[in-house]
Amino acid sequence: MTTGDDRAEEATSVPPIAVDAPGSRSWQRAFGDLRQGWKQRPLWGYLGWQDIKQRYRRSVLGPLWISISMAVIATAMGILYGALFGEDIRTFLPYVATGLLIWNFISGCILEGSEVFIANEGLIKFLPAPLSLHVYRLVWRQTLFFLHNLVIWAVLVVIFPQPLSWTVLLAIPAFALLVLNGAWIAVLSGIIATRFRDIPPIIASLTQLLFFMTPIVWQYDTLLRNPAVAERARIAELNPVMHFVEILRQPLLGSPIVGHHWIVVGAITVVGCLAALVCLRNYRARVAYWV
């Protein structure tokens, strides 16, 4: 015979069902989450900096290892592929280093974005904070990595002078677009990956493929000047990451600004932000149950 205590124990053992509270699916709450997360800048700013310090704790050089490791990789790849493709090292090494610098920011937002809520499971369950706080923290951390590595670009510009002009100022709005896209990618992929745990490995594999499809260690303009492969080379423009790399690399290296890269990035930004907002509106309340 089942007693009252047995029934109470069975009831408490049933896992909670993710039922949205009334009004949880609203644009007001979605935008409110973004606003509240932005207002907590001191918190996610501190946490983002602590993430970097924790990674290099007890090392002699500390966060300087970020720039040192990037400089070694960029130099090695620039010399190797420059020799293979017969490129002038004075222009090819800054090209590769700048491309790697931008790629690291993009890939960091993609890879860590897919696990942004999974990695913060404890905070999401026990700390009453907006979901966007974790996204801001991730993007801020990647921005700090980028600023550390920007020293490499400055050193290479001094060693191998580039034809810089006023267009270098376009690097500021270009990087702002990268940050905005990194945020919506983290929101969208983070929510989907929290529900479907097969997504992060798939994204990791696709990101590795994108690296070889993106003109980082090879030059797109060089292929276009080759009549034998010019038409096939244009297939590279189907890779959206290429356009994000180019809008920032071109002003940093003093290259001619190609307008259609900005148009493609602008269109992707608008569509991506709308998709992320819809996902945040519909599933924000369920993330705590999924992690």
Score class of each variant (00 low, 15 high):
12 T>W: 15
12 T>S: 15
15 P>S: 09
16 P>S: 14
17 I>W: 01
19 V>L: 09
21 A>Q: 07
24 S>Y: 00
25 R>L: 07
26 S>M: 06
27 W>D: 05
27 W>P: 09
31 F>T: 12
31 F>H: 01
32 G>K: 08
33 D>P: 12
35 R>G: 09
36 Q>Y: 12
36 Q>S: 13
36 Q>I: 03
39 K>E: 08
39 K>H: 13
41 R>A: 13
41 R>T: 04
42 P>R: 12
42 P>Y: 09
42 P>Q: 12
43 L>C: 02
43 L>Q: 04
43 L>R: 06
44 W>F: 09
44 W>R: 13
45 G>W: 05
45 G>P: 02
47 L>C: 06
48 G>I: 06
49 W>I: 09
50 Q>I: 15
51 D>P: 08
51 D>N: 14
51 D>E: 11
51 D>H: 13
51 D>T: 15
51 D>F: 02
54 Q>D: 07
55 R>E: 14
56 Y>R: 09
56 Y>K: 00
57 R>N: 05
58 R>G: 00
59 S>F: 04
59 S>N: 08
60 V>T: 15
60 V>A: 11
61 L>A: 09
61 L>T: 01
62 G>N: 03
63 P>W: 00
64 L>K: 13
64 L>E: 02
64 L>A: 11
65 W>H: 04
65 W>F: 00
67 S>H: 01
68 I>P: 08
68 I>Y: 02
69 S>F: 12
69 S>N: 12
73 I>N: 08
73 I>E: 03
74 A>P: 11
74 A>L: 07
75 T>R: 07
76 A>V: 13
78 G>C: 05
78 G>T: 06
79 I>P: 11
80 L>H: 02
81 Y>L: 02
81 Y>P: 09
84 L>K: 14
86 G>T: 08
86 G>D: 03
87 E>Y: 09
87 E>Q: 14
87 E>T: 01
87 E>H: 09
88 D>C: 03
89 I>W: 03
89 I>A: 11
90 R>A: 15
90 R>L: 14
91 T>F: 07
92 F>H: 13
93 L>S: 07
93 L>P: 06
95 Y>M: 03
95 Y>F: 15
95 Y>R: 06
96 V>L: 04
96 V>Y: 10
97 A>S: 06
98 T>P: 00
98 T>Q: 00
100 L>I: 10
101 L>N: 06
102 I>F: 12
103 W>G: 02
103 W>N: 03
104 N>Y: 04
